[in-house]
Design a protein around this nucleic acid. Structure first.
Length: 259
DNA sequence: ATGACTAACCTTGTTAGA
C-alpha cells in the first residue's frame, strides 16, 4: 500500500497538478493539507473520476484538509478530540479516517507566526490536542499522523539553523511536542531525498529557495509500531516542486508491505 | 534547467504562509 501526504497550497489552484500526480504516483491513500476551500468547494468530481473516495474538511478560505482513498474510507472524524479554537473560531486542520485497515490523520498544524504571537500559543495547545487524539486512538492496528507539522524536528531539518534565531518551527517547546508524540509510541518515518543530502519537503517561493535547496523538513509522517515496521520505502517527491504552478511543499510518499 | 512569491477574496489592497 502506498500512502502519501501533500500540502497543496490551494486544491483549486493545484488541481491540474494534483490530478496528474495521482495518476503517475498512484497512491492508495493521500492526505492533503491547505485546501484553501470549503468542504463543498472541493473538486470531488475530478478526484472521484480517478477512483478515489474523498473525505474533505474545509471551513473557509484558509487551511482545510482531506483524505483521498482507493481502499475504502471509514469512521471519518473531522477535528481532533478537544481541539482548541483560535480567536474563538474552529479551524479545519485535522481529519481522520480508516483506509484499508490503516488509521490515518491528515493534519495541518498551526503555523505559529511569531514566538510572541497568540498563534504560537495556539499552536502548542493544538499539538497537545493532537497528542491526546494519538493516545486515544493508536493501538495494535497500523496508525499514522501525516501532514504539515510546521516543525523542523532537528537543526539538520532546515537549510541553515543560523537563519532561524527567534523563529518559530525550531523552538524547544515545538520540538518537545514532537517528542511527546514519540513518547506516545510514534516514530518519525524519515523519507529519503531524491536529490541532495537532506529530505526537505518545503521551499519558500521567494529568493530562489528551491534552486538553492534552501528548504525545510516540516511535512512529517509519525507512525505507530505496526505502521512503521511495515514501511519498505519513503521518499520526498521533489519533482513536484519544480516548474510553474507548483505548491511550495513536495509530497512525501510512503510504501508499506501488504494489501 | 529548478529561476527573482503565491493564493483567496472582505479583489486595484489585505491576510496568510514559514
Amino acid at each position: 500500500m502506498r500512502i502519501a501526504t501533500w500540502n497543496v497550497n490551494s486544491v483549486g489552484a493545484r488541481l491540474p497538478r494534483l490530478l496528474a500526480w495521482l495518476e503517475t504516483a498512484a497512491p492508495d491513500v493521500l492526505c492533503l493539507q491547505e485546501l484553501k476551500c470549503t468542504t463543498e468547494a472541493f473538486p470531488l468530481a475530478e478526484v472521484s473520476a480517478l477512483g478515489y473516495e474523498v473525505a474533505a474538511y474545509g471551513l473557509g478560505r484558509w487551511n482545510g484538509v482531506a483524505i483521498l482513498s482507493k481502499v475504502g474510507i471509514e469512521n471519518v472524524q473531522r477535528g481532533l478530540t478537544d481541539e482548541p479554537t483560535y480567536e474563538d473560531a474552529v479551524e479545519s486542520r485535522a481529519i481522520g479516517a480508516t483506509c484499508g485497515g490503516v488509521r490515518v490523520w491528515s493534519v495541518y498544524v498551526p503555523n505559529g507566526r511569531d514566538v510572541e504571537h497568540d498563534h504560537y500559543a495556539y499552536k502548542l495547545r493544538w499539538l497537545e490536542a493532537l497528542r491526546g487524539t494519538v493516545v486515544a486512538e493508536s493501538n495494535d492496528e497500523p496508525f499514522a499522523v501525516l501532514g504539515d507539522f510546521n516543525i523542523a524536528p532537528s537543526d539538520e531539518d532546515v537549510w541553515d539553523i543560523g537563519k532561524f534565531a527567534e523563529s518559530t518551527h525550531v523552538t524547544e517547546p515545538e520540538r518537545k511536542a514532537l517528542a511527546m508524540l514519540r513518547d506516545a509510541g510514534l516514530t518519525d518515518v524519515i523519507p529519503r531525498p531524491l536529490k541532495y543530502d537532506r529530505p526537505f519537503t518545503y521551499w519558500d517561493y521567494r529568493a530562489l529557495a528551491f534552486p538553492n535547496n534552501n528548504g525545510m523538513r516540516i511535512d512529517l509522517v509519525y507512525a505507530n509500531g505496526k505502521f512503521a515496521s511495515a514501511v519498505t520505502d519513503a521518499y520526498v517527491d521533489r519533482n513536484e516542486r519544480k516548474g510553474k504552478g507548483a505548491s511550495d511543499h513536495a509530497p512525501v510518499v510512503v510504501d508499506l508491505t501488504g494489501a
